[in-house]
Design a protein around this nucleic acid. Structure first.
Length: 783
DNA sequence: TCATAAAACCTTTTT
DNA sequence: GGTTTTATGA
């Protein structure tokens, strides 16, 4: 259990006391320390598994931690709670919902749901006159809830002279009322309502305080005030009188009351240099002031890094040292210097992406697996260029997060059916599917039903059951009646039947799938497949949780995080945002778009502490790399269709020059022709770089190709990277000559794979060796 | 009520 | 560039 630990790590594992702060630098083995500490507590009989509550940042991290603890103990540690803040709170709230006036079937609104509701409210209150937007309202409400401020507190804090403030208050009030009416909680409520629960019901709080004797929180630097308050409530000493006559978690009355039970022990792990969620309400003071909040606490510093090479650490240390007002901390390693950091400046984001693709091919040839490689970016929009090039280069990849499966319209529809079945009070979901598929219940009917519900003080669902007084046409009335019958039958089975069965029943009886299949929109074919995938998901869920109810399924889906999608077994390159990358590590890391305006992001400039937080984000990205780190940028980046000049990020200058090996530096790229179209169109060989024998080609316009020069009149027209192409069943064999519109002429050296997945390896005359997906590469045979 | 076309918005990062 | 909202007519 203590094997291979350094003295500080060992101390952290063995420490026994009320409060412990572990300041863990990047890669210092904190996860290992945390898991061993839990296992050590159990093995030494200082705790039963059921007395442990460990909070992680993602569900995936929670699952891994559980596995590792059980691996160390050699037994299954049932009763241990290892989960995210949100999952733990849902679990508590479902148990105790009635105390707060909710039913345990409450719906969890994700950000999209919250925004949809806010949009309605803003429209109804005619609030857009004051330039109140959905996102402004959403962030103000979210901030209030993260600070444990309810509507009345919000109203008190508002400026009564400011009509916009008054409107925000009205929106918040209405929003809260609508949530309550729909028996729904948003993400921020999950934490805040749990805190309110514990504060308002000491007897309930005492039960949890008595149960969780040891609380451990990972990534403590990213906790917000509500989460901090929750921890405070849980670590309070339970009062004996609150435990008197209480029913335990096993359903039996508590046998003995420990007359004076102390507050539970708290271990937090964090690194203020990796705090990157201030925008979400994370309060760095939670960690900075920990020693003040928990007197008699011990602090252990973990500075030895077991992950990265010295060059990578030197760069990370140099960058983060530019943040003032931080505790001095220097990571060191015994791994050795390692390779230099590779820098590259592309002419466009496509050029940058091509460089990355070429490097990945080389890394692979040097023995690295795809799964050991990751590409990071600041914004989700940056994936497009990367994906285009990766597809063309036949590099298997996976985008983590981004536009998620559960955000697709057809999946939201299907989920809305399930939510409506589980929680009939939820009007948002019901409204979504009211006329999907088309059943003749249009806006006018919906408004009539809604106002009837408002008038009678009943839910929308109840209004559907008795619309007789509304004077609906016979056709519409029949449609309404049929829908509500289907939904009510599904609701009746919601607790017992398998989620998959309920879903299939709903989709077939309402004709949803048939309507999609019958559509002549070609996109609907893909939608049918997606819905079928969702059905498979529900089946898989039931397989993994034989007792899992519809409600359990919906809870799990509502709380999936981007990082939960990672599947280590798959041999793919991972693409993700820098935020998602936190806590992960890869042998080779590509950090892309290191440009002013992107990293640091434009939007952060005006925010207090913005540039410093962006620097931490850069720091987090750098420290994910074990052996190889690539920093890349583009000279121009197009968004909204037009092209913008991009400048190298200020953070690049903070890295000592000798640590970076610039394959193509911003200076090199800039020295060649100052104007934008010139640079975009620059010819290969003109930038003063020598391509090494295996060096990646970085040519991108068709103008270098003989016979294709005519296209140069408009360089953008010739850019294949923006054209969709299908070569049908073009077949190639080794030895054939081809022309590629980006890379020029070349000879096929090998062909692998079958059918649409076949890949040609081509030795180009001037652009080096490439792997191309034959079906879609912009190539033609030379006869 | 619904299908199509024009217009407006957009991009920080996420549980 | 692409999605989503709004306007228009059938």
């Amino acid at each position: 259990m203590l094997e291979g630990l350094n003295p500080q790590q060992r101390e952290a594992v063995e420490f026994r006391g009320q409060a412990l702060l572990i300041v863990a630098g990047a890669g210092s083995g904190k996860t290992s320390v945390l898991t061993r500490r839990i296992a050590h507590l159990i093995q030494s009989r200082d705790a039963w598994p059921s007395q442990i509550l460990a909070i992680t940042f993602t569900n995936k991290a929670a699952g891994e931690m559980r596995e590792r603890v059980e691996g160390l103990l050699g037994q299954v540690a049932d009763g241990m709670w290892i989960s995210t803040f949100h999952s733990a709170c849902v679990r508590i709230l479902r148990r105790e919902a009635e105390a707060l006036g909710y039913q345990k079937s409450f719906t969890i609104y994700d950000s999209a749901d919250s925004r949809a509701l806010l949009k309605r409210i803003i429209k109804e209150l005619d609030a857009d006159r004051f330039s109140i937007t959905v996102s402004k309202a959403a962030s103000r409400i979210s901030r209030a809830k993260n600070d444990l401020m309810d509507v009345d507190g919000f109203a008190r804090a508002a400026n009564p002279q400011d009509p916009a403030d008054e409107l925000y208050t009205a929106i918040f009030r209405r929003y809260s009322a609508e949530l309550a009416r729909a028996n729904a909680l948003d993400f921020d409520d999950l934490i805040a309502q749990t805190v309110y629960l514990f504060r308002a019901f000491p007897k309930i709080a005492a039960l949890y305080q008595r149960r969780f004797r040891h609380i451990l929180v990972d990534e403590y630097q990213d906790t917000n005030h509500a989460q901090y308050a929750l921890i405070r409530e849980l670590t309070r000493a339970p009062k004996p009188e609150d435990l008197k006559g209480a029913i335990g978690f096993d359903g039996l009355p508590l046998k003995e009351f420990d007359s004076a039970l102390p507050g539970s022990s708290l271990t937090v792990v964090g690194d203020s240099d990796q705090s990157i969620y201030a925008f979400r309400g994370a309060d760095i003071r939670n960690i900075i002031e920990f020693e003040r909040d928990f007197p008699n606490c011990s602090v252990i510093l973990l500075e030895q890094n077991y992950r990265s090479t010295q060059n990578i650490l030197d760069a990370a240390n140099a960058v983060i040292a530019h943040n003032f007002d931080r505790k001095e901390k220097n990571l060191f390693t015994t791994i050795g210097g390692g390779e230099k950091i590779v820098g590259f400046t592309g002419y466009s984001q496509h050029d940058e992406a091509q460089f990355i693709a070429d490097e990945i091919v080389e890394l692979r040839e040097s023995g690295l697996e795809y799964r050991d490689i990751a590409v990071f970016y600041r914004t989700n929009a940056q994936t497009r260029a990367l994906e285009e090039v990766f597809i063309r280069s036949a590099i298997p990849y996976r985008v983590i997060g981004g536009t998620k499966f559960y955000e697709r319209a057809e999946i939201k529809d299907a989920m809305a059916y399930l939510i409506t079945a589980a929680n009939p009070a939820d009007a948002l979901s019901l409204r979504r599917i009211l006329n999907v598929p088309r059943r003749g219940i249009g806006q006018a009917t919906e408004a009539a039903l809604q106002s009837y519900a408002d008038r009678e003080g009943i839910t929308l669902r109840e209004a559907l059951r008795d619309p007789s007084s509304l004077g609906l046409g016979p056709k519409v009335a029949a449609a309404v009646q049929e829908l509500v019958e289907i939904l009510d039958e599904a609701t009746a089975r919601a607790d017992s039947a398998a989620p998959g069965d309920i879903l299939i029943e709903l989709l077939s009886r309402t004709g949803y799938l048939e309507a999609l299949k019958a559509s002549r929109d070609p996109q609907d074919d893909a939608r049918v497949e997606n819905v079928e995938e969702l059905i498979a998901h529900t089946r898989e869920f039931r397989h993994n949780n034989p007792e899992g109810s519809l409600l359990d399924f919906l809870t799990e889906v509502a709380l999936v995080a981007a990082a939960d999608e990672l599947d280590d077994s798959q041999g793919t390159v991972s693409l993700m945002t820098l935020h998602t990358a936190k806590g992960l590590e890869y042998d080779a890391v590509f950090l892309t778009g290191v440009e002013e305006g992107l990293l640091p992001h434009q939007m952060s400039a005006g925010e207090p502490g913005g540039p410093a937080e962006e620097r931490r984000l850069f720091y987090v990205g750098i420290t994910r790399a074990r052996r190889r780190l690539y920093l890349s940028l583009a000279m121009t980046r197009s968004q909204f269709g037009d092209v913008n000049i991009a400048m190298p990020s200020r953070y690049l200058q903070e890295i000592p020059a000798e640590l970076i090996d610039w394959r193509q530096s911003p200076g090199m790229a800039n020295s060649r022709g100052g104007t934008e179209p010139r640079a975009l169109n620059a010819r290969r060989g003109g930038f003063g770089i020598e391509a090494s024998a295996a060096g990646p080609g970085r040519i991108q316009t068709g103008s270098t190709t003989p016979g294709n020069g005519g296209a140069a009149s408009d360089p953008w027209k010739s850019r294949v990277t923006s054209t969709v192409r299908d070569n049908g069943d073009l077949t190639l064999v080794a030895g054939e000559r081809i022309n590629h519109s980006d890379f020029g002429d070349g000879t096929v050296t090998a062909v692998t794979g079958v059918g649409p997945k076949s890949v040609a390896e081509v030795q180009f005359d001037s652009a080096g060796r490439k792997r191309l997906l034959i079906k879609i590469a912009p190539i033609s045979k030379i006869q």
